[in-house]
Design a protein around this nucleic acid. Structure first.
Lengths: 107, 107
DNA sequence: TCATATACCTAGTGAAACTATGTATCAAGA
DNA sequence: TCTTGATACATAGTTTCACTAGGTATATGA
């Protein structure tokens, strides 16, 4: 897939991924990659700053933990994050329908 | 809809719109706006530079004409543009499926 | 005559995601 | 033992993309 495809939909993806499965950053990336059959393969340098921003915005909450000697920062979606996610889902549906409409359009 | 939603999908949209209906820039914008029920409302400053780039890349061909005293630059999709469009459509489907997969994902 | 719609254009800006790089731990294998 | 790769975090700087803001010009209706 073209790299630029996800532009503008990254918040949606990360919020949805964490809603489905609270996890730490590295695992979120793994989950997205596996769930999408490899097509959503996000660089850490893309994901971590967005997770920080979403937490600052109050949409995610994180706590540090330790697993097999390595520290992890595990995220979950807040109440506010849930309504934000629902709003973004509506946006996605609207956008997606609009694109589909143009793609199937015959003369 | 959020403004940033279309990032990375603008080439797809414009190529598809012109394939469906060869038209001049202003009309392409109108068509997209009407077809999408208003949600795809692209500024001219967004669309015109992309049309120029797509023409430079060989994906669109344009010719000048005149209608009711105003000059128009009408675009159509080239052969090369058609295969580019088909590739972009595949990318879109893949991306769209991946997003849907994450959205419906339960724990 | 004055605003609005039509129709084109581009320079500069801002935001978004990426590249590159760094730190640290652990397991496996040479 | 030493190195490589996977796990796990972080951020500074760059690039890319769409947008804002400004410009030109013609036609139409109030």
């Amino acid at each position: 897939m073209r790299g630029e495809a996800l532009k503008g939909h990254l918040d949606l993806l990360l919020l949805a991924a964490v809603r489905a499965r609270p996890a730490h950053g590295y695992a979120i990336i793994e989950n997205l990659r596996l769930r999408s059959g490899g097509s959503l393969d996000l660089p850490e340098g893309t994901v971590y700053p967005v997770l920080h921003r979403l937490e600052r915005a109050g949409f995610l909450r994180s706590r540090w933990s330790e697993a097999s000697g390595r520290r992890r920062r595990t995220y979950e979606v807040t109440e506010e994050g849930l309504s934000e996610l629902r709003a973004r889902e509506r946006d996605w549906r609207e956008f997606s329908r609009a694109v589909e409409g143009v793609l199937v359009e015959a003369t």
